[in-house]
């Protein structure tokens, strides 16, 4: 092996950051310009500029489509994608398991269950329209994680890949069945099962965007600050303890943040599978397993991935919408296999 004795900085290179900072807005712009209703490019640009300048755009023809519908939707796609991808990356590091993700571990299903229960039994918080479902979704996501992990520890204290995924899948099915049960009993109130199984980003407005943004900044920020601890966990939990990581505290912190982020995403966008599994995995193949790079790049990659998936969902069957979960699963698995094969061929 030829070695170039260079000293790499651990974080991202400035250039790499700039590249991602450039690609993400480009994709954002593309997704705002293209949609189920054709809006001339010039109009779109003018509308965005006018809206930013704060001038009155209420009279302009496509104003409401671009400003009230498309931009908040693309923004929520970006934020949900970023959050789910970050959660996936965090859990995959924490559990030293590349298959861990909100959907494979049943955390998303648990969050759905929480939201569905909140709706079915009318659990609300006065004056805060989304709070009831959201809090229940977060709570159930966290409970779900606790149950899965304690079951996994009981059966196999080394938390081996197979055990935890097996338990996650079983748990996920179990929770989905309870969700179906609740929906059956409360069928009047909740007819929207595709939302809870496949997700949808329709109808998201700037309030949703703000909530998602806040959640990503707070909980995502905490996850990002634990990059070194996640590196240690990804090498091995025992090793993490040996080098001085407060294993219990870090694990609890990450789990709380992941639950909160997934809970918020699920209550706003439904269950969107595959984002948290595929994007960190792809990112890891590109930048390596070091979480100092992996986590921030996953944020961008997740945003790009879900914005593009949502674009496909919006335009492929126009005027029909595809459930976003269908698109993420399809694109995700194809891209995943492609990168997996080319990654293998390079021999790393």
């Amino acid at each position: 092996m030829a070695q170039i004795p260079h000293k790499r900085k651990e974080g991202l290179y400035v250039l790499e950051y700039l590249a991602f900072l450039a690609v993400t807005p480009a994709v954002f712009f593309l997704c705002v310009c293209v949609g189920s209703v054709k809006v001339p490019l010039g109009d779109t640009v003018r509308l965005i500029l006018d809206a930013i300048r704060g001038s009155d755009i209420s009279g302009i023809k496509f104003a409401s489509i671009i400003v009230s519908v498309r931009i908040p939707r693309v923004l929520s796609a970006a934020l949900v994608g970023a959050s789910l991808s970050l959660c996936g990356a965090g859990m995959q590091g924490l559990l030293k398991n590349p298959l861990a993700d909100g959907s494979t571990l049943g955390v998303s299903s648990a969050a759905s269950l929480g939201a569905v229960i909140a709706i079915a039994f009318g659990i609300t918080v006065p004056f805060l329209p989304f709070a009831g479902t959201m809090i229940m979704a977060i709570l159930f996501a966290f409970l779900g994680l606790l149950i899965i992990l304690s079951l996994a520890y009981k059966l196999d204290s080394s938390l081996s890949t197979n055990t935890i995924i097996l338990i996650g899948v079983i748990f996920s099915m179990f929770v989905s069945s309870i969700t179906s049960l609740v929906i059956t009993f409360a069928s009047d109130k909740i007819k929207h099962i595709t939302f809870w199984t496949m997700g949808s980003l329709q109808g998201n407005n700037y309030t949703h965007v703000l909530i998602l943004c806040g959640a990503l900044v707070i909980f995502g920020g905490v996850i990002l600050l634990h990059a070194r601890e996640l590196n240690a966990f990804a090498v091995g939990e025992d090793n993490a303890r040996n080098i001085g990581v407060n294993v219990r505290r870090v694990r609890l912190t990450i789990l709380i943040c992941v639950s909160a982020l997934i809970g918020v995403c699920v209550s706003i966008g439904g269950t969107i599978a595959f984002v948290g599994l595929v994007t960190p995995h792809m990112t890891r193949i590109i930048v390596g397993p070091n979480h100092k790079k992996l986590l921030p790049v996953s944020v961008f990659a997740g945003a790009i991935f879900l914005m593009l998936s949502d674009l496909a969902a919006r335009i492929l069957l126009n005027p029909l919408e595809l459930p976003i979960g269908v698109v993420t699963s399809m694109i995700g698995s194809v891209v995943f296999i492609y990168i997996f094969i080319t990654g293998r061929r390079k021999g790393k």
Binding site: M173, F174, S176, T179, S187, H192
Partner: peptide, 22 residues
């Protein structure tokens, strides 16, 4: 036991879902 339960619930939830689709 869990596997058996999961199979059952899988069948069950598969059915229930379809029935409740919008």
């Amino acid at each position: 036991l869990i596997m058996a339960l999961a199979m059952l619930t899988f069948v069950f939830c598969g059915c229930a879902k379809k029935d409740n689709a919008p």
